[in-house]
Design a protein around this nucleic acid. Structure first.
Lengths: 210, 210
DNA sequence: CGTCTCCTTGATTGAAATCAACTTAGGTGG
DNA sequence: CCACCTAAGTTGATTTCAATCAAGGAGACG
């Protein structure tokens, strides 16, 4: 189904219904099992959604960047935990209120559907990423995906810690660290400091994805 | 966001717009890159959606069972391939026609949103499954998930081949086969024949998921 | 009865997890 | 400003588990 992109802020749309909120780094936005009363739009900063597996491991499902909507549920409860990766500004929308608005506003309904499907596409891409089972493939894909979020910049800042990357890629921090070092030694990337990456050879990096 | 389940077949709803189609086993329903003109509802049978990775590997994103809708896209093209796992009856809906209907039918719009979010939830659950990185955890989870689709039955039929299971779980057929044998030896399941499974100890199997 | 496909089982290899030590960066307080 | 402390990241050695390589079995079908 084809859905054009529509900005969330148009008269009578989402903007009217939401309230702006600030979250400090690592602050929880909502927890697994919390009632799904709100969904959110990222204005600035980065958000992660994650599940905690029984053995203490944590799985990061997605990172959300400015413009993204997250927190959609089919049930009464949030099935994931959402946390601010770095200081973040969000707009919170009440689900019920927006559902009522959407019932009489076809454009808004269309827009919500668009964002739900976009999240689905992202989840499917994440699945494909985890299936590339070599650590090098995963890290290379992650770097390419992340940097293409910021096409203008030469050196890209990673707002998340190594542990976040590891939990997103289904690897350990040691493996992520080693893989980054190896990519640097091979001249594919530069790591000027711990949170910054420069792609020296994007094409070569792309080849690693197979 | 909370969405109650609505049957797709109600007057003025989806049913009016769709056409019934049959697909033989392993028949392609649509291919990666095909124009996304239709989406589908499963009436009977099982459908898989998959991507082919550059190295020849295949990743199965999801299995769809009767009642499920699949084929939603944000762009103009299908990003996955859909195939019939076994003989399947589907209803095909034209995206554009349904979008027009949805613009003036709030209930239909709501329903489409519900199904898009449901696919998202399934994708997120699949992600969590792949993150349980032991083969035993994955296979146990798969068996539990699949059999809970058919709560009434004692012995459940797996419509898909071992290779499908392997590609869904990110494992090889050998590992799937070995793991099933091991679960059988441990008395957790019975495999009366190649396509049937009986959960002898669902609780014990659940414990393996961690 | 032979052949093909799908599945199972075994032996070996390899990549990432784990265990463990060390380095770096950042923050605090004397 | 520097000494200390802590959290985060890197690097190395070893182990573990699934992939790979290889061979054999079971069922379907002409």
């Amino acid at each position: 189904m084809e859905f054009g992109y529509l900005d969330a802020c148009y008269p009578g749309g989402l903007c009217a219904a939401g309230s702006v909120t600030n979250f400090a780094e690592n602050r929880m936005i909502y927890g697994e099992g919390n009632p799904a009363e709100m969904f959110f739009k990222v204005v600035s900063g980065v958000v992660r959604t994650c599940t905690f597996l029984g053995n203490g491991r944590r799985q990061i499902d997605a990172f959300y960047v400015p413009g993204d909507l997250f927190g959609f549920e089919t049930g009464q409860e949030h099935r994931l935990t959402a946390e601010a990766v770095c200081p973040a500004v969000l707009i919170a929308y009440p689900c019920r209120g927006v559902a009522i608005l959407a019932a009489s506003n076809a454009q808004l309904a269309h827009q919500l559907r668009y964002f739900a499907i976009r999240s689905l596409v992202q989840a499917q891409e994440h699945l494909a990423l985890l299936d590339r089972n070599s650590a090098t493939e995963r890290v290379a894909s992650f770097l390419i995906d992340w940097t293409t979020c910021f096409p203008a910049q030469d050196i890209v800042t990673l707002p998340m810690a190594r542990l976040d990357i590891a939990d997103y890629l289904g690897l350990t921090i040691e493996t992520v660290s080693r893989t980054l070092s190896r990519l640097q030694k091979r001249g594919l990337i530069a790591l000027p400091n711990i949170r910054q990456v420069k792609l020296l050879d994007p094409a070569g990096l792309g080849d690693l994805r197979l």
